[in-house]
Amino acid sequence: MGCRTGYKDLCGRCVMDKLPGKASGLTGTDIPEYSFVAPDDGRVLADWDGNQIEAAVFNDLLEPAGEQAEVLARYASSYYAGTPALIRNRYGKGEAYYFGGAFAVDTAKVFLDKLGAGTPYGEVLELPECCELAVREKDGRKYLFVLNYASESVKAVVKKELREFFGGEVIKGEVELGAYEVKIFAE
């Protein structure tokens, strides 16, 4: 979750609860103060294990609330420097992450990578950034759809043997996808 989570109810009305509102128990986060990022602030950054991530637009100044809440990142710039910017809260069988800024594209990429969601099929396929991977499952079998959004051919790497759906051949290694081509593999 990011800044402003819990600010409005399901009907879009601002709630009078202290932020993050109804999400406070899940996030393990208290927000004693928040601020809009002023134009003269420049980029507000937070440090997450050496990764500088941008906390854009708004900044929630966070405090952990509860024994399961842990500070993972702190603001590294502006007057917020040193204040918690990211809290992980263990909840039930899972975890909730609350980030005190809006998600800039580069910040979202860091989150996806650090949380293991950036390349969930990285052990199976290595794709260029212009390709999308969609996975579907039917009758216990997985189908991997690789879509090339580029106007030119690109190369992908198939790291374990997969059967090409239409041709039926088993492929492992480098494979070329033509401009805007889609390939479907079966695991």
Results as ranks from 00 to 15, higher is better:
52 Q>K: 14
116 G>W: 07
67 E>M: 01
146 V>G: 13
107 T>R: 06
46 A>C: 08
120 P>R: 14
125 L>M: 07
138 K>L: 15
106 D>T: 10
46 A>L: 06
144 L>Y: 15
108 A>N: 12
105 V>G: 11
89 N>C: 11
68 Q>L: 07
7 Y>W: 12
89 N>S: 12
87 I>C: 00
47 D>H: 04
80 Y>F: 15
14 C>D: 10
112 L>S: 06
18 K>Q: 03
116 G>A: 09
62 L>W: 07
105 V>Y: 09
42 G>P: 01
107 T>L: 09
149 Y>L: 10
81 A>K: 15
74 R>H: 06
125 L>P: 02
96 A>K: 07
74 R>G: 01
61 L>C: 15
117 A>L: 15
135 V>K: 08
51 N>T: 09
105 V>A: 10
10 L>C: 07
56 A>M: 04
41 D>K: 10
150 A>F: 08
22 K>F: 11
80 Y>M: 15
20 P>A: 14
17 D>V: 01
79 Y>G: 11
140 G>S: 08
144 L>G: 04
21 G>K: 06
109 K>G: 03
117 A>W: 12
80 Y>S: 12
80 Y>W: 13
49 D>S: 14
151 S>Q: 10
122 G>D: 05
110 V>T: 11
74 R>P: 00
90 R>C: 10
96 A>L: 08
13 R>A: 15
55 A>N: 00
42 G>L: 04
93 K>V: 07
94 G>F: 09
139 D>Y: 09
7 Y>K: 01
112 L>V: 01
18 K>A: 11
34 Y>K: 05
10 L>E: 15
36 F>C: 03
107 T>C: 05
100 G>E: 13
49 D>I: 06
22 K>W: 07
16 M>I: 03
32 P>Y: 06
29 T>Y: 03
8 K>Q: 03
19 L>S: 01
58 F>S: 00
77 S>Y: 11
64 P>H: 06
6 G>S: 07
99 F>H: 09
15 V>R: 00
65 A>C: 01
91 Y>M: 08
115 L>E: 09
80 Y>L: 12
125 L>N: 10
82 G>S: 15
119 T>W: 07
82 G>A: 07
120 P>V: 11
69 A>D: 13
119 T>P: 05
31 I>Y: 08
102 A>R: 03
25 G>D: 01
147 L>N: 11
12 G>A: 14
40 D>E: 02
50 G>M: 12
10 L>V: 08
95 E>H: 12
92 G>D: 02
29 T>E: 03
114 K>H: 00
69 A>W: 13
12 G>S: 15
48 W>N: 06
60 D>F: 15
7 Y>N: 02
32 P>T: 01
97 Y>W: 14
137 E>W: 05
130 C>A: 15
82 G>N: 08
78 S>L: 08
87 I>S: 00
124 V>M: 02
100 G>D: 11
11 C>H: 13
